[in-house]
Amino acid sequence: MLAYIDKIKEISGKLLKDGKVDMVIGFRKGSMPMMNEPCFVREAADVQNLVWDSNCGINLANYLAGRKEKIGIIAKGCDTRNIVTHIVENKIKRDQLTIIGVPCKGMIDRRKVSERFEKEIIEAEEKNGSVIVKSADAEDTLKKEDLLQDNCSICIHRNPVIYDELAADLVEEQKDVDRYADVRKIEAMSAGEKWRYFEDLLAPCIRCYACRNACPLCYCPTCFVDESQPQWVGKTLDPVDSRTFHFLRAYHCAGRCTDCGSCVRACPMGIDVRAFTKKLEKDALDLFGWEAGMSVEERPPLDTFKPDDPEAFIK
């Protein structure tokens, strides 16, 4: 990790110094442990603030939409896929970007750490695949692989799919990962079971829209939930309204979602929002052989019409 950050700083500093970019989007240390925060570095001298470790789960592509400057961006595999989606969807131009690719071995889900401790975590340090965590009254060394975000542990695109610079050597991609075991489990449920499952899943939702705000795909100037003419969705906490919101947001991500996990990471209530998006991600793969954000040449399958599109779903 140390090697990574040195290289990141070096590349970023050089880009800023040479005037190739107006700013670099990266991470700096947050005010709480395991909560690195995004930052915009505009001066070469400030690259010293940049950090890189397994707490950089936030998808930085989210900060690109509509920007006019020349930007250097530090990007994991999933970030690059969302950058690709952004390029395809006219959110940013490829020539505005210098992508500093970071091969990734997965990000830590801080909840998986905190649930092992009774008191608040004060410090967490990463070393050789382990994390040494201190809470107010305890200390433990945990294995990083046990703490990964769910999406990271099944990730098959850890390396950047598009980049101009690389912060480290490419890592080996995970093979033979069963990406959709959880989706299949839900698919196998009866209608009644599904109903209960989703009812329970969404019961804690407080409609804060953190999932939407964290999602790089949700860049519309006016989101459908904020519209009143027509009123697509009610604004209340009525379960029907909450469901409508989540269903429709998932559909908006169909064929575009890279399973970066930002939504789950952002949810203050710990809802597995990916339960929706993953089903559609799986369908896009099954029906169209499509993985989002792999090529700037192609638009997502639901954006295009081909006479030979699969239509087995029509009964």
Binding site: F224, W232, V240, T244, F247, L248, Y251
Partner: peptide
């Protein structure tokens, strides 16, 4: 639109 389906169910 999926919104129509949801509205009708609603």
């Amino acid at each position: 639109s999926p919104k129509f389906a949801l509205a009708a169910l609603r």
